[in-house]
């Protein structure tokens, strides 16, 4: 059995690799086709002489066919060498690493906040379906889902940082506690929409389970409401975990805007800066890294089914 499970895991991992490969090709092609002369961009404001251009072209293999260029880029990328940033002139890899901490902390904090608030709220509303609390939370979550993080962020900034002065306005702070303090507002802004989404999907999943026959039968044979709720939650966990996995992609989209709003030096603001500057090597690396994180999360969610859904376990084995 465990060998079959391993085979399933390997198959899924291979599929993820194939997807990443296709994505890298897509990203590379996209930027290859982007208007503008890359060599000229690479030279930046320095003296543009035909010799300099030729040298740059040779250095970056820009005069080779598309596939060769792609291969050259990819073979370096897998070793962590994403080339040189046009804007800073430094290595892209270390630049990314440097920026990762802030983003990971903000996104992680936001994820935690939205799950810790959203899942219990979703369960509470599902159990009290149709009552005032349910309707209030559902209405709030609709507003939350529709609220872009940067608008919420600006309003939070205005109220809590500028108005009340409880939180710092911009920047990252020094030391662990201060840094955490600086991340509270950005994380809350990011968690706002995410949390609303979690409420909606948790509520839907729990309600779907509450309507099942096995709940009626559990009550019909005298099990306590506590036990019935535990039964329901165990079953509802499967769709909830899937959706939480999908949220990672959403988090990365949102973090760009939040970091710009709060002037945080993370990967998100790096995206903005690089795109505006047409810093192609950085953009390529960033997209690939995000794709990697998103696909690996999807893979992890798939594999987590093996643990939480016995039906998938045997289906995986049988296949």
């Amino acid at each position: 059995m465990s060998r079959a499970v391993l085979a399933f895991a390997l198959r899924r991992a291979a599929a993820t690799l194939a997807l990443l490969f296709a994505l890298s090709l897509l990203v590379f092609a996209l930027l290859y086709l982007a208007p503008g002369d890359v060599a000229r961009n690479l030279l930046g404001t320095r003296n543009v002489t035909p010799e300099a251009l030729a040298r740059i072209r040779e250095l970056y293999h820009l005069d080779e066919p598309f596939l060769a260029q792609y291969w050259w880029w990819l073979s370096h990328a897998v070793t962590g060498d994403f080339g040189t940033s046009i804007r800073t002139g430094g290595q892209v890899g270390p630049l990314l690493l440097d920026r990762t901490g802030v983003t990971a902390a903000t996104a992680g904090l936001a994820f935690l906040l939205s799950v810790l608030a959203g899942v219990p709220a979703g369960i509470a509303t599902a159990v009290r379906r149709g009552r005032p609390l349910d309707r209030a939370i559902v209405a709030a979550s609709v507003a939350g889902v529709g609220a872009p993080g940067f608008a919420v962020g600006l309003i939070l900034l205005y109220v809590f940082a500028l108005g009340l002065g409880w939180f710092p306005v911009y920047g990252t702070g020094e030391g662990f506690l201060d840094a955490l303090w600086h991340l509270v507002l950005p994380a809350v802004a990011l968690a706002f929409g995410l949390g609303a989404f979690v409420v909606k999907l948790t509520r839907a999943a729990v309600i779907r389970e509450l309507d099942q026959d096995y709940v009626t039968f559990a009550r019909g044979r005298g099990l306590s409401e506590r036990r019935v709720l535990r039964l329901v939650l165990r079953n509802a966990a499967i769709p909830i975990v899937t959706s939480l996995g999908l949220m990672v992609a959403y988090l990365f989209g949102g973090t760009v805007l939040i970091e710009v709003t709060f002037a945080l030096p993370g990967l998100g603001s790096l995206v903005e800066e690089s795109v505006l500057f047409k810093d192609i090597p950085v953009v390529q690396a960033l997209t690939l890294v995000v794709a990697l994180v998103v696909s690996v999360t999807a893979l992890a969610v798939d594999l987590s089914y093996l643990a939480i859904d016995p039906r998938v376990r045997t289906r995986a084995v049988r296949r």
């Binding site: 026959d213 039968f217 044979r221 005298g222």
Partner: peptide, 23 residues
């Protein structure tokens, strides 16, 4: 809570849906 189970138990029609699939 005190009636169901020890005094009256209800058995449903469809055995495919009346048991929790993940327990």
């Amino acid at each position: 809570q005190h009636i169901r189970g020890s005094r009256i138990a209800l058995l449903l029609q469809d055995p495919f849906t009346s048991l929790s699939p993940v327990h």
